[in-house]
Every structure is written in structure tokens, then in C-alpha cells.
Write a protein that binds this DNA or RNA. Sequence first.
DNA 1: GTAAGTACGTACCTCGAAGTAAGTAGGGGA
DNA 2: TCCCCTACTTACTTCGAGGTACGTACTTAC
Lengths: 125, 125
Amino acid sequence: MSTQVGLSGSAGPGDAFDSDCPSRAVLDHVTSKWAVLVLVALSRGDHRFSALRRAVGGVSEKMLAQTLRTLECDGFVHREVAPTTPPQVSYGLTALGHGVTGHLTGLIRWIEEQLPEVSAARSRG
Amino acid sequence: MSTQVGLSGSAGPGDAFDSDCPSRAVLDHVTSKWAVLVLVALSRGDHRFSALRRAVGGVSEKMLAQTLRTLECDGFVHREVAPTTPPQVSYGLTALGHGVTGHLTGLIRWIEEQLPEVSAARSRG
DNA sequence: GTAAGTACGTACCTCGAAGTAAGTAGGGGA
DNA sequence: TCCCCTACTTACTTCGAGGTACGTACTTAC
């Protein structure tokens, strides 16, 4: 008997430890190389495409567009187009987006603060 | 004049938005596909190699060993070998490991709970 | 006239992340 | 006797994430 009741399907919360659970895909999207930084950047306020690209150091236009599309599809980011010439597109977080990003900002801040400890551990190990 | 003072080098906390900052590497390690699940699994207590492999659904032996080595190198995981035959190796979190994992468990729990919302958004988008 | 910016889409290519499979060395069970 | 279990390592292979580069349609600036 397992101590865990595995309800597969749409009922109940997901189980990220189950390789078939759709939460795995969401986890992969959210923790992907650029998504973390994009989400945290957007938590500081709405950004235009180019502003976002400047904020997230090292991201290519292709990957930024791709990351934004994925996050928009998952409902974390909303896209707003102003009908000017040229069209000005601005990105921001949805309510769902603010939810995940809360955890991510905490994570990033922790890493930035504990970086000396990690570097020390790495040079030891 | 930029509004941001960029102190590169070892002084002060890192800046994950700078592509040259070493915190990027740590972020990539911690948010990698398997590291998230391994860390959260270990937060529930020490695990042997095979137990860990069973806990984290879908991970191969190679990737588990590789992930554990990276996390051990960064000082998040400690490895303990019991001098029995065959040697029993057990893995657990260090103090540093408990620090990051706090944020990760929050993230995973949030995703598992909000999965219906995300799925709904995805089918809409 | 030319260059640069805005907001992407698309094509091409590379390199490494990750999967598969097998080897290792000792011990215990069928 | 032979296979399985533990805890990995190594070799081979694949596939896709991600980089580079260019196109687009329009505007502003020099």
C-alpha cells in the first residue's frame, strides 16, 4: 500500500513527482533558463519587448519572443498591443503570473544573497 | 548615467540579470529539470540513491548521479557513505540546501495547486 | 540616402542536455 | 547457476534548446 493516493486526471492537485503529471510541463516552462528572469523582470512592472530584452542580460530576440509566447499561453503573462505606428507591445503579469513570480523573486533574491556561500562551497568541493 | 551601480567582482550580492554574474550558473543548476525535484524530495528526509530514483519519477540513473554531483559541488547536498558491503550511500540537504529548497517547495506546491487554473488558461490561449 | 529602432518571424546550424544501454564488483536469493 | 540488487561510470546516440543572421513594414533622425 502506498501512503499516497495518486489521482490522475483533472481531479485534485497535481503531483510533480509523477512523470506523467501535466504539472511537470508547467514546472519546466516556469523554471526554464529565461522564463525565471523574464517573470521576475515583469514583477517590477510592465515592459516593452526591447526594454525587457535590455533588462534580461544575454537573451536573444528569438528566445525572448519564444519564452513570452509560452508564458502567455500558460496564462502567466498578458500581452497588450497599442494600435500606434509602429505598434507598441507591452507585457505584464497576470494574477496567475504574480502568483508564481512571488516564489521566483524569493528564490533569485536568496541566490544573489547567498552567492558568496555557494562560491565558497564550490571552491571547497 | 545609468541608474544602476554595477559592482562586478566578488563584492556585494550578485545580480542575476547580468549575464556575466556567477549567480546565473547557480540559478541554472538549481532550476534545472531534475534538480528541483531532487531537492524537494530530499527536503522530506534523507534518501538512498535508488530510493531517490524511485521518488523522482522518470529520472535516469545517469541524470540522477549527474544532478547529485552538481548539487553536492554547489554545497546544497551532502553525501554520506556507510562502509558496508555493498556501500550504502545516502543523500541529504545541507543548511544551504534547506535554504534554496524552501523556495522550491513553495513553488512546486503552488504549481500543483494552481494546475487547474493553468490548464484552463492554456486551453483558452 | 543611410542608419537605427520597434517587434517580431523564419531559416539554418551547432552543441550540449538527456536518453539508452551496457559494464563493474560484491552479495543474497531462487 | 544465474540473475537481481546497489551505486554508480562509460560509451553511444539523438533531439531540441538556443544562437546567429536575415527579412519585414514603418518611422525618426542625421
